[in-house]
Nucleic acid binder design. Structure first.
Lengths: 136, 136
DNA sequence: CAGTATCCAGCTAGATACTG
DNA sequence: CAGTATCTAGCTGGATACTG
């Protein structure tokens, strides 16, 4: 326990919490979906203008997401001010989600991460192959 | 299943695997430890020159890490070519770990992430507080 | 349409004990 | 010193069923 008081990354630290948000799989994908064109291939680029999306639209767009994870992710993003949630009192109700400036900023960050990863991918892959040969 | 073939972020994609590496808690902390001075407060900065460290030194430096996680993290980093592992055949053996250029590059990336997170922290915290008041 | 509620399988990581 | 091996509690996330 006495060791635990030294770190700046662990649980309590706000910056750590934000890292958790940044690095969540569905967060990345939801943000991408909010900027995608209709092409269904949104993982890589998705640098389009963030227009509002309906829940069902996101659900259909995102490959393999469960309702639970989609809702959970949307709530978390809304709470952090990264997206807005708008309810129109139609019958049945219409709910739309839209990226905020802060959310846009996060997504730009994630895209930066992604391109860094891709830039060094070959290098890492080569290292792994070499290591696995050495070790067997 | 048919939905799963569209994404570029999910399991199979190499860039996704690298993202996992980037965003691992212990990876960040081990890299930081390899660049820390002896101050024991290494979470925040740790922009020092990466000098070799012994296993036991890392274990003592890192707050709350288990042997299992430390070893596991070190192996993963070594496999990816982000650190080197050097064994000197003394009795008992002496093992040292040192950051490679690629590892250094990763750590710079993580530090960038961290400063981004810190820059937007206040904003997010305010949004959370506002949301929690709205909802209760 | 846009969720909520519940259950459960699988993975992760901490604790503990042991070793060349 | 620098690990490996094993067990298990807890969390995460998927499947399923139900609702204003």
């Amino acid at each position: 326990m006495s060791k635990a008081e030294y770190d700046a990354f662990l649980a309590g630290c706000p910056s750590r919490q934000l890292l958790d948000r940044i690095t969540d799989k569905w967060v990345a994908l939801v943000l991408a979906a909010l900027r995608s064109d209709g092409s269904h291939r949104f993982g890589a680029d998705c640098a389009g203008d963030p227009r509002p999306r309906r829940y069902s639209e996101l659900f259909r767009t995102l490959p393999g997401v469960s309702q639970k994870m989609l809702t959970q992710t949307l709530r978390a993003l809304e709470r952090d001010g990264l997206i807005t949630r708008t309810v129109e009192p139609t019958v049945p109700v219409t709910v739309t989600y839209e990226m905020t400036d802060l959310g846009f900023s996060l997504h730009e960050m994630i895209r930066g991460l992604k391109s860094w990863a891709e830039a060094h991918m070959d290098d890492v892959l080569a290292n792994r192959a070499a290591y696995d040969t050495r070790v067997g």
